[in-house]
């Protein structure tokens, strides 16, 4: 893309406008998150089919199914949770860079470093810390859906909170190594 002023294999600015090299660790992390993201991305198509199935079942055959209703938001929840880290590594999270666009790369790198450590990493690790007992309680109580004929194993759905925020923390760590490498390189 920016091949004019960059070596072909050199770092390129992502959508965030920050130029970062890739580290071995970040490459591995991004690949892992990519698998989860690809999986989540398939769920939307499945969700479409489930909704169509459910509507046909009810409208044409007069059969309502609370189970199918719950399958819908289970798929949706897993989809968006697993996609959080995926979106982060694709730098698709919204930034207000009206002012930041004009700052030096070095300033932006330092902001990025502090942001990752104090905001993204502390937040996602804290969420992991809180979600583990949240899931465990649900598992111990054998929590099932409160709806008649709903889905069992509510803990299984809730456990995706842990997975999602672990992945998000990994995404943060991966990016941290890249930011660190960029700062060291200067």
């Amino acid at each position: 893309m920016n091949s004019k002023n960059m070596p072909a294999d050199g770092p390129v600015a992502g959508p965030s406008g920050i130029v970062l090299p890739i580290t071995a660790f970040s490459r591995a992390v991004d690949r892992l998150i990519g698998w989860f993201g690809e999986f989540a991305s398939l769920l939307w198509t499945v969700l479409v089919m489930v909704i169509v199935f459910q509507v046909v079942l009810r409208y044409v055959f007069g059969l309502g199914s609370i189970m199918l209703e719950e399958v819908q938001w289970h798929l949706y929840a897993v989809g968006f949770l697993l996609g959080l880290a995926f979106t982060e590594v694709h730098e698709r999270n919204v930034r207000i860079d009206v002012l930041a666009e004009g700052w030096s790369q070095r300033t932006r790198l330092w902001i990025e470093l502090l942001g990752i450590v104090f905001f993204l990493l502390s937040f996602s690790l804290l969420v992991v810390w809180f979600s583990v007992p949240f899931v465990a309680t649900s598992w111990e109580m054998g929590e099932v859906s409160a709806a008649p004929g709903g889905l069992p194993w509510r803990w299984a759905l809730k456990s995706f909170l842990v997975t999602a925020f672990l992945l998000l923390a990994l995404a943060g760590l991966g990016r941290l190594t890249r930011v660190w490498a960029a700062l060291r390189a200067r």
Binding site: G64, S65, G150
Partner: peptide
Amino acid sequence: LGASVTML
């Protein structure tokens, strides 16, 4: 009783 119950 045979109703098709939902939880909208």
